[in-house]
Design a protein around this nucleic acid. Structure first.
Lengths: 230, 230
DNA sequence: CTAATAAATGAATGGCATTCATTTAGTGGT
DNA sequence: ACCACTAAATGAATGCCATTCATTTATTAG
């Protein structure tokens, strides 16, 4: 199928999109910032399942192959998105106030941002920071916050990594279905677990279960790691 | 059914799979246990990139479409694998000894198992335990361990979830490349971060960096969560 | 004995990322 | 002013992949 797709257009009041003839256009249509923005729009509209190179090209009113003049692969697009998201993480606490409060605000916003973007977590976990300026900027601010709070220099990176690991895992947790711990017909053979599930659901009432666990773990990490300060 | 599983070809020691004629064979060739075993073998040999329905069918010496008589989708295969892996997690500490030691042994082995299977983490995070008997069994044992250690019932699930979140995030961390924190040409603009990276690398010497961070975070979590006991 | 069901084959199907030949436009050097 | 090179677009493959469907054969239930 020729896929009428992107640029149909002509006279009808569509999104615009005149068909472009082959060859380099006078003004460049694409750049990394535009690709990033289009990817984010697509993700928010259709989710990560809807983020395909073809769909991205359609949003940008370009042939799919044109994207490859600006990124080497789809993975590259994900990297661009990932780095952009890092700029949304709240670092304001590291400007003043206690280390505990700064870490808490940072961790909650970091988790919230990536809870909406869990498919990027495997990407982040392996992404060399060199290629990600926003990510690097975040690490710089956080490192300085830890240093100023009195952390021994050689403990700073392990502490940040431990916190990040917890944050990434917790981001997945946010996306879990309500009934994930429903033991169903097997409940009879798991009395202790089933009782614990019932009991935590009962004591819950307000707020998401994921928030309760995150709060609990974060407090434990903050107090445990905080003890490393000189 | 013992499930001959990875069906071997007739007499010849070819890798080559006698061609079976169409129609139901007298003895069933496939079952879930065999599919699970073949998937695990494939994963260990070729990684998750090599785990395709076609490759799985080839290992089992069947046509790809035959798999769909036993599983509904590839996701289903991943679920089978995931549940099998849960049986490899070390629960022995919960038989006796201190809660701290039991949790520590459980957490390390849990992380080690899934560090080799990070592509399953998104699957687990969303998997209803009903469909996963081994997973359910693990939760039962761990829940009982927490209860016996004096945890208030309504705190047990949040505490386990917090630990699991940390474990999953840390499993990704194990797979990160050595030089992930290399700031390269940008190092000049990130003095605090770069110094922290150098310093933690220097103090490292033995063991993986991921182990240092995991140990640090796990100790913090254990001492913080342990304080919840009555 | 027969109808329903289970389990296999083999041939599509449609979606996907990616590549390649081709076209056109700007750019740097002489 | 010319020319070679490079940049940025189109459009037509390519190959991989999960999944579906019609068909065949065997077993099982009534």
């Amino acid at each position: 199928m020729p896929a009428v797709s992107a640029a149909q257009g002509r006279s009808t009041s569509n999104g615009g999109a005149q068909r472009r003839r082959a060859g380099r256009p006078s003004a460049a249509v694409l750049d990394k910032a535009g690709i990033t923005a289009a990817a984010l729009e697509l993700i928010s509209r259709k989710g990560y399942g809807g983020l395909t190179m073809a769909a991205l090209a359609k949003v940008l009113e370009v042939a799919p192959s044109a994207l490859y003049n600006h990124v080497a692969s789809k993975q590259d697009v994900l990297l661009l998105v990932e780095d952009h998201l890092m700029s949304l993480v709240d670092l304001s606490g590291f400007g003043g106030g206690s280390w505990e409060d700064a870490v808490r605000a940072w961790a909650w916003s970091y988790r919230d941002v990536f809870a909406e973007h869990t498919p990027l977590i495997p990407v982040i976990a392996v992404l060399p920071v060199t290629d990600a300026p926003q990510t690097l900027a975040m690490y710089e601010t956080v490192s300085k916050g830890f240093l100023d709070a009195g952390f021994p220099q050689e403990r700073i990176i392990p502490a940040i990594v431990a916190l990040e690991s917890f944050i990434f895992g917790s981001a997945y947790d946010v996306t879990a279905p309500e009934d994930i711990f429903d033991s169903g017909s097997m409940a009879g053979s798991t009395p202790n677990f089933s009782a614990a599930v019932r009991s935590s659901a009962a004591g819950q009432e307000r707020g998401r279960p994921a928030d309760t666990a995150f709060s609990l773990g974060l407090d434990a990490l903050i107090s445990g790691l905080g003890a490393l300060r000189k």
